[in-house]
């Protein structure tokens, strides 16, 4: 029992990202409204960003900006003192991609609304069926 609690606490970042991801997936698949689906998509992407950022954490480390930069000469950098910078870089990219996808998705939604005057998926399907 203790072991389970220990795992549950020590790895709480992973449980967080998994639950967020499931919320996002649920919203994309089960929601009827396209804006809600898009919000779900964003939650899914954010969950993955959270996962990457939590990888980069290191206990007792600081942000990856070399401290002795201003003219204090060259001392060896101890990598243990700084967080892992790579996931931060990758997530900057992923955030940008998420924003870009969101922009395109909203643009499509605007087009969709102009065409059907609703964003509920079932109502749109009804309209298509009636047109045929």
């Amino acid at each position: 029992m203790d072991a389970i609690i220990e795992i549950a606490i020590a790895k709480y970042n992973y449980w967080m990202y998994i639950s967020l991801m499931m919320i996002g997936l649920y919203a994309i698949i089960a929601k009827n409204n396209f804006v809600k689906k898009i919000i779900g998509m964003n939650i899914l992407q954010t969950a993955i960003i959270l996962f990457y950022i939590s990888i980069s954490a290191k206990r007792g480390a600081t942000i990856p900006i070399i401290r002795h930069a201003e003219g204090h000469g060259h001392e060896a950098v101890n990598a243990m003192e700084y967080m892992n910078p790579l996931p931060h870089v990758l997530m900057l990219t992923a955030i940008v991609v998420a924003v870009a996808t969101l922009g395109v998705a909203l643009a499509l939604t605007v087009r969709l609304y102009a065409r059907f005057e609703t964003l509920e998926e079932d109502e749109i399907n009804d309209q298509i069926r009636e047109a045929q």
């Binding site: 994309i28 396209f34 998509m41 992407q45 996962f51 998705a105 499509l108 749109i124």
Partner: peptide, 25 residues
């Protein structure tokens, strides 16, 4: 109907790309 098809493509495509990204992570 193209915007509707495209939005569905976008939602599924984003799930696919996110899975890939998570796997790489």
């Amino acid at each position: 109907l193209a915007p509707l098809a495209s939005l569905r493509y976008l939602l599924l495509g984003t799930i696919g790309a996110s899975f890939y990204l998570l796997g790489v992570g």
